[in-house]
């Protein structure tokens, strides 16, 4: 995959690229030094979420491109949940870049190779795609999770479904989904919401749905007390 970065760098207009993994972070980068690691991590995280959102709507998604006045940013999924992110100048030869990327994809035997539509999986998941949907649709936690998703809409609006599914996937990747690991899911949602006031309101909303299952586990920060 490092060879992929080197090859892309030779295309006129390419400023540089990086290989990003949602759990492992930046794997490789040949972007200029001004792109420090915290920036790359933040950029990677946002771009992967955008890409995942697109994949949930378009199963045949091949690439996401963002166009700015002085630059453009492209993200493609490679294999094993690794993403290729390219930063280029506005005059970047997109036809040449697309051809190069398609050839590289074939060489890497990527799920995003143009010969066939990619499988319906989002890159952040490391477990089979239906698991998050399965948790939400059936099983002992379905009712609570659906309620959490529904209440999330009161806090973040119509983006709640995307944010909640993303949080579910992160929960699945970092912990065994069960009522005892609900605190982990709540922590992830707090990270996603990124607003202490909104999070406090959301925790009030979901407390009744999780009380019965949380009698032993408890919420972070002693949230259990709020129900009394």
């Amino acid at each position: 995959m490092n060879a992929a970065l080197e090859e892309i760098q030779t295309i006129p207009g390419v400023i540089g690229g990086l290989l990003y993994h949602p759990q492992k972070g930046v794997l490789e980068s040949d972007l200029p030094a001004v792109f420090k690691e915290p920036k790359l991590l933040k950029m990677g995280r946002i771009l992967v979420k955008m890409y995942s959102s697109g994949r949930s709507n378009f199963s045949d998604l091949s690439e996401l491109s963002l166009y700015y006045e002085e630059s453009l940013v492209i993200i493609r999924e490679l294999r094993d949940a690794v993403f290729l992110i390219i930063v280029g100048a506005p005059d970047l030869n997109m036809n040449l870049l697309t051809m190069t990327l398609n050839l590289l994809m074939e060489e890497l035997d990527s799920p995003s190779a143009p010969a066939a539509p990619p499988p319906p999986r989002t890159p952040a998941k490391q477990k089979p795609a239906p698991l998050a949907d399965t948790l939400l649709e059936k099983g002992p936690m379905a009712e609570s999770l659906k309620a959490m998703q529904s209440e999330l809409a009161k806090v973040v609006g119509p983006m709640s479904k995307i944010i909640f599914m993303d949080a579910l996937n992160r929960w699945i990747d970092t912990a065994t989904p069960s009522p005892s690991t609900y605190p982990t899911l709540v922590d992830i949602l707090a990270d996603e919401i990124d607003d202490p006031e909104k999070m406090a309101y959301y925790q009030q909303l979901i407390a009744p749905y999780l009380d019965l299952e949380q009698s032993d586990a408890g919420f972070p920060g002693g949230r259990k007390n709020e129900k009394e």
Binding site: N57, L61, L64, Y67
Partner: peptide, 9 residues
């Protein structure tokens, strides 16, 4: 920010 594009097969 000018626009973004989801390219599909």
């Amino acid at each position: 920010f000018k626009h973004l594009s989801f390219s599909r097969h």
